[in-house]
Design a protein around this nucleic acid. Sequence first.
DNA 1: TTTGTTTGTCTAGTCGATAAACAAAGTTTA
DNA 2: TAAACTTTGTTTATCGACTAGACAAACAAA
Lengths: 396, 396
Amino acid sequence: MNLDINQTWNQHVVKKGNKSIVLEIIKNKSPISRADIASLTNLNKGTVSSLVNELISENLIYEKGPGESTGGRRPIMLLFNASAGYSIGIDIGVNYILGILTDLQGEIILEKKISVHQLGYSEMMEQVIDIISYLKKNIPESRYGLIGIGIGVPGIVHKNGTVLIAPNLNWKNAPLKEMIEDQFHVPVMIENEANAGAYGEKIFGAGQTSDNIVYVSAGIGIGVGLIIDGHLYQGNKGFAGEMGHMTINASGEKCRCGNIGCWELYASEQALIQKALESGIAREQASLESLIEKAHHSDPAAIKLFTEVGKMLGVGITNIINTFNPQQIIIGNRMASAEQWLREAVEQTIKENLLWFFQDNLSLEFSHLSSYSASLGMTAFSIENFLKIDLTAENK
Amino acid sequence: MNLDINQTWNQHVVKKGNKSIVLEIIKNKSPISRADIASLTNLNKGTVSSLVNELISENLIYEKGPGESTGGRRPIMLLFNASAGYSIGIDIGVNYILGILTDLQGEIILEKKISVHQLGYSEMMEQVIDIISYLKKNIPESRYGLIGIGIGVPGIVHKNGTVLIAPNLNWKNAPLKEMIEDQFHVPVMIENEANAGAYGEKIFGAGQTSDNIVYVSAGIGIGVGLIIDGHLYQGNKGFAGEMGHMTINASGEKCRCGNIGCWELYASEQALIQKALESGIAREQASLESLIEKAHHSDPAAIKLFTEVGKMLGVGITNIINTFNPQQIIIGNRMASAEQWLREAVEQTIKENLLWFFQDNLSLEFSHLSSYSASLGMTAFSIENFLKIDLTAENK
DNA sequence: TTTGTTTGTCTAGTCGATAAACAAAGTTTA
DNA sequence: TAAACTTTGTTTATCGACTAGACAAACAAA
């Protein structure tokens, strides 16, 4: 329990907290009866009843009807009303924009993906606004409608919602949050793409059972999202996890970021392609996909390339484990699609280099959500925010 | 606010929380009146009065007498009763054992330090028990007496209080907590020395105003303690922060830990001495102290050595900043005593290599507490634990 | 003095949780 | 089939913690 010195405690806080717990349980374990909630939480039956009735009148949950008897009166089963509101999540990539519309359970209702090439900031924004408008127009009739918009960006995002820099997009100091909020008048959250992905995996993907997760977003660059004690760690101003630019080779070459021997230079998609070109395995139009294709056809040079990059991925991941002692490492983003050719090299490197007591009980996985981690993570942020705010505002 | 699903909320929780807040304020801002506490916390005057009276009857605070009037009735000033109990902190080093006795405010009442050489585990433990007994015997008459013992160890400590491995002490699987608890029957906490130091700096030293702090314990090896959102981050099983074994040179030599090009190999006291020997600057009996001595006499070779090691310290610290985006970096332990010869190289390296947006508003300091960081940190753990437990147990 | 201010206590009232009684709707047993 | 037992969910009385506001005590300023 967090004894925040600026937050005093009173009955309202108690009620809000208990209501949140009840809602959370219904969300995760539905269908469930009032009686079961009471025994699960150790709250009094009467308390649960009254909280449940409030939640029903707020349309956040509803009664499904009688369930199976266990030797007495049949329980009334409660369900989370995932259609009470809808959330929009946008994943801005280097050459695509993906927008999804989900219900409060994170179920994707509608999606729209477009390819973009070399667009400037304002053209990009036009596209984003177009996609949001399209998704918003298609929201079904519901009590709360659009409850929030979340946008994941491949760049450094300040806590206040400004994108400080997104090198691959050529953005600098873009006041994204402000702009979208002015346009749509709902809460907007901006996050780094790796953070969004980490949260997506935590809520919907491979990380659901762990509380300390490291999500390695290995794409054109490398970013890392950190889930610490069940919450996204954002650092002092919001930009923690820039581990793509951690030095793993102090005697190596200079990175465009100014630092030396950055991890990104050895283990990203860009590194892979660069190496392919240098070694002559591929020509000008080298891409991750074409290299995977080659590997599929047992091209030994391509396979060796993946092994090399996998090793360097492993080196960085070993550093991360030494630092965080997480329960789980999840590798996501585009490179995850080469799991078949990377996994062994990564695992081998970790096994060889990691202190033994870290190895026990550590799970390494590749992303389950494929291309949706980031966008789903962003909808989850909005949903979580909505459910908290809602419980606060309507019953202060 | 933390909505823990296993913890339901009721009035007891509210009271406990508010009482903690009131106590915390008295501890930090004493002397202070009831009225001031009320306006500071936004709690009702009556509520504050009743909580304060309970705390008085528990001897945790006391009334000092009337303060200055500000135009009306003179306030009754309240003080934290630092002498209500005493805490023992032990810092086990490679060749010393330091024990301190502090009051609840962290004021050192008594200390004892002995040198040790090549002792085995059981002999070492005898010494530790001797020191604790000595300190305990000298505790002044007080309401709560000895409230806890904290021990900092240069090794990997499991959450359950077992030292998994302490290479420089030659310990393996030492059930330290159990042993000391059996002997003294008070709560015992065991922590890694870097974690202890980090906490010490957070509570008593350079880190008091920041909530995200990285404490780099640069001694014979390198350890890192992480204060995240005001709390010590311990990782999944308790051993986060083993950054001494992070690879900063993937093409470097093998470390005895099994990994390659570990930071420790380039930036620790051991690395310094090794380099001194290799380059012939020093002979067999090289030590940090002798090298500082040389540097003091403007020996250019020694100064160059510190610069080299400082650079490598900077490389690792840059990695840490990229990862955590902390407000503050504190360099502590033995190498901190060479601040004069290290600081410029460290700062320069960080400045050159760190992404610009991290640089803004980041403070780099060398430890303020000199050799007491770890032991003070350990007493602070016990005190914090005591004040929480106490408030819980006596008024459930 | 008188007036106004500040401090700290006290009292009545509110709100939310609990315990226990109770009604409703089942199952099991004789 | 009736009686006895179970389980669910609501209702009622009570408790405990906080709040608002009244009040007395203690002081300063006019």
